[in-house]
Design a protein around this nucleic acid. Structure first.
Lengths: 338, 338
DNA sequence: CTGAAAGCGCTAACAT
DNA sequence: ATGTTAGCGCTTTCAG
C-alpha cells in the first residue's frame, strides 16, 4: 500500500479510501490511485484491515461433508445473499468427524468470522461455550434442535420421518420398514436418526410393529447402504410392503438392488426417500421422496445474517430466531398408489 | 490475550509462547497460562498473528463446484496432509463462473494464503498476474495445462479421451460416439472439452468419422445431460454402437434413458464414462469408466506444498513441478466385450 | 526462561 | 477532499 501511495502521490489513507469508499475521493485522485493499484497488482490485506476496522468481512460455514448436493444448495443460497452485502463465505468441512469439527471451529474462530453457520451438531458444552464467547451470531441450520445455541433455520427431521410414515400409512400399507444408520450416541448422524425416530413414533401411534425399522452401517449414507440395508430388512422383516430410507442415496441403492433381485418397484416393494436428490428423478421408476428447500434455507440464513450484522443494536441474545422452512412430499413412482 | 496474561500473572509474550511454542516455557508457568486460556475461552487471533509473523497458516483451494465427489476427494487428500503440518485448508468455489472465479481469487489473495491450489482454468492474463504477484506457490491440479502458471499436478484430459476411444476401438467398434458440453470459448468446461477432443483425435487417426461426437448443453454435466445428449445422438448418428460420455453422471443418464427406451446395454449400445463416481458402480449394469486417483492427487499436492513452504529457499520459479498421476480404465459391464 | 519495545498493514478518529 | 496520529492483537527481536 505504501508503494501505491507513493506512485499515486497521495497518502496511504487516500489509497485506503479509494479501496473501501471510492465516492469520497476526488475522481481525478481516485483514477490516479486506481492506476497505481493496477500497475502494482496491489491486493489489500483484509486481515490487516480487519484488525484495524474490527470487520473481517466474512461469514463461516461449517459443513459435515463436501459431497452433499443439498448442502451445496445451502451454500449457494447463502453466497448469493452475502455477495450482495459484501461478505465472503468461507467453508470448512468436518467429514462427519467430531474431533475435526472442534478443530475446524477453532481455526475458523481464530480468523474472526462475523457470523458462523453450523450444520453439524456441535453440542459439546465446550464448543457451545467457545461459540458463544465469540460474541457473533451463531446460526444452526438444517435441523430444529430443542436446545439451540442461538438462531435456528431449519426443518424438523423428526417430522420428516412422521410425514413419510403417514404418507405410507395413508396409502394403506401396514407392513412398513425404514432404513437408516446405526446411531452410536455420537452426533454423527443425528439428523438421520431423528428421521427414523419420527417414523417409529408414527408406527407406534398406529399400533404397528417396528420390526421393519433397520439401523444398518454408519453415516454418511450412500447407495451401497441401501443394498446392504435392504438385504438385512429382507432377513428380518421379509413381508415388508413399503420402505422409507432416511436418504435418497440409500433409497436409490434399494431400487437398484431390487432390479438385480428381480423385485418390481413399486409392485413388490414401495420405496420413498428423503432429500430430493437429482439421481432420484433419473432412475426407473423415478423416486418418491421428501423435499426441503435447501436453497431457500440458505438465502434465508443469509438474509438473517445481513439483518443481524446490519442492525447497530448489540447482539440481543434473547431474541434468537427460529424458522421452520417446512418440507413437502414429492410424489413420483416408487410408491404404489392407494 | 491481555486478560489471559493478567489472569496468569505473566506478560503477553509468555502467553504467545505458550500458544505457539509451549516447550520453551517453564511447565509451571505454562500450566498457569493454559488454565487462564481455558477459563477465559481465549482463542488467539490468527489474523493478528499472521500480520506480525508473516505466516497466515492456511492454504486456499479453489473448486469449480461443491458437488463433485472427485474434487471432494482431492480436498480430503489435501486436508490429511496439511493437517499434519499445521496448515488449514480454506475452500472457495466458483460454480463454474468466470467472473466469480476472479472475485473469489481476489478475496482469497486478500487473506494471504501461503499457497493456492486451483482447479479452474484461471488463465486470464490478469488473474495469472495477480497470482504470480502474490509470490506464493501456485498449484494447478486436475489437468495438465500446456502453459501452466507454476506447478501442476494432474492428468491429461486429452489422454482420457484418447484412452476411451482406443478402448472402444480395441473392442472392434467402428461407429463411435461421444457426448460432452458445448464449448463456448470460455473456460467453463475446459476439461470436458479436452476429453472430447482427445476422443476425436483418435477417431481421426483411425480414419473414422466424428459425426457421433455431440456437444450438447452446458457444463457442469449431470444426469439429464446424458438423456438429452443421447436423444440428439440418436437423431444425428442413429447407428452408433458405442458411446463415451465425458462424465459418469452423463453416462448414467444415458443408461437410464436406454432403460426407458427399452435399449439393452451393452447389447444395443455400449457406454463408458469418466470419473468413477459411486453411482456408476450401483446401476445395472455397472458402468465401465475411467478412474483417476483424485485422493492421491490431493495428498501429492499437499506434500508438494509442505515441501515448498518448508524449504527456506526462496521460491525458485524455474523449478516448477509437473506431475502426471495417470488414469486407468475400470472395466465393468456397459461395454460389450470384443 | 521471561519481558519490553517495535512494528506487521491497515483504518478510525480527528485534524486541516 | 486529504492528511496525521494512534492503535487493532499479535510476534519479532533483543535484553535481561
Amino acid at each position: 500500500m505504501r508503494e501505491v501511495a507513493q506512485l499515486a502521490g497521495v497518502s496511504r489513507m487516500t489509497v485506503s479510501r479509494v479501496v473501501s469508499d471510492p465516492d469520497v475521493v476526488l475522481p481525478a485522485t481516485r483514477d490516479r490511485v486506481n492506476r497505481a493499484i493496477a500497475d502494482l497488482g496491489y491486493v489489500p490485506d483484509k486481515a490487516a484491515g480487519g484488525l484495524s476496522s474490527r470487520r473481517t468481512g466474512f461469514v463461516a460455514l461449517m459443513l459435515p461433508t463436501l459431497t452433499n448436493a443439498n448442502f451445496a444448495s445451502v451454500a449457494h443460497g447463502l453466497t448469493e445473499v452475502l455477495r450482495g452485502s459484501d461478505y465472503d463465505l468461507l467453508i470448512a468441512y468436518t467429514d462427519y468427524d467430531l474431533g475435526e469439527e472442534e478443530r475446524q471451529l477453532r481455526n475458523l474462530l481464530a480468523r474472526r468470522p462475523e457470523a458462523i453457520v453450523l450444520t453439524g451438531a456441535s453440542h459439546s458444552r465446550e464448543i457451545a461455550r467457545l461459540l458463544l464467547a465469540a460474541n457473533i451470531p451463531i446460526l444452526e441450520i438444517a435441523d430444529l434442535p430443542h436446545r439451540p445455541i442461538e438462531h435456528v433455520i431449519g426443518f424438523s427431521n423428526h417430522e420428516v420421518g412422521r410425514t413419510a410414515a403417514r404418507y405410507l400409512l395413508d396409502r394403506g400399507f401396514t407392513r412398513l420398514g425404514a432404513i437408516g444408520a446405526v446411531y452410536d450416541g455420537s452426533v454423527l448422524d443425528h439428523r438421520g436418526e431423528e428421521r427414523i425416530r419420527g417414523f417409529e413414533e408414527e408406527l407406534r401411534r398406529s399400533g404397528l410393529p417396528t420390526t421393519g425399522v433397520i439401523r444398518h452401517g454408519i453415516a454418511p449414507l450412500s447407495y451401497d447402504h441401501g443394498v446392504g440395508a435392504l438385504q438385512e430388512l429382507q432377513r428380518r422383516a421379509p413381508d415388508t410392503q413399503a420402505l422409507f430410507a432416511v436418504s435418497d442415496l440409500s433409497a436409490v441403492g434399494v431400487v437398484m438392488e431390487c432390479q438385480r433381485q428381480g423385485l418390481r418397484v413399486p409392485d413388490d416393494l414401495s420405496i420413498m426417500g428423503f432429500g430430493n436428490f437429482e439421481i432420484g428423478r433419473e432412475i426407473n421408476p423415478p423416486l418418491t421422496t421428501i423435499n426441503v428447500d435447501f436453497h431457500g434455507l440458505g438465502s434465508q440464513t443469509g438474509r438473517l445474517i445481513v439483518d443481524l450484522l446490519g442492525s447497530a443494536t448489540p447482539p440481543a441474545r434473547e431474541a434468537a430466531h427460529r424458522v421452520d422452512v417446512g418440507l413437502a412430499v414429492i410424489e413420483r413412482n416408487t410408491v404404489r398408489p392407494a
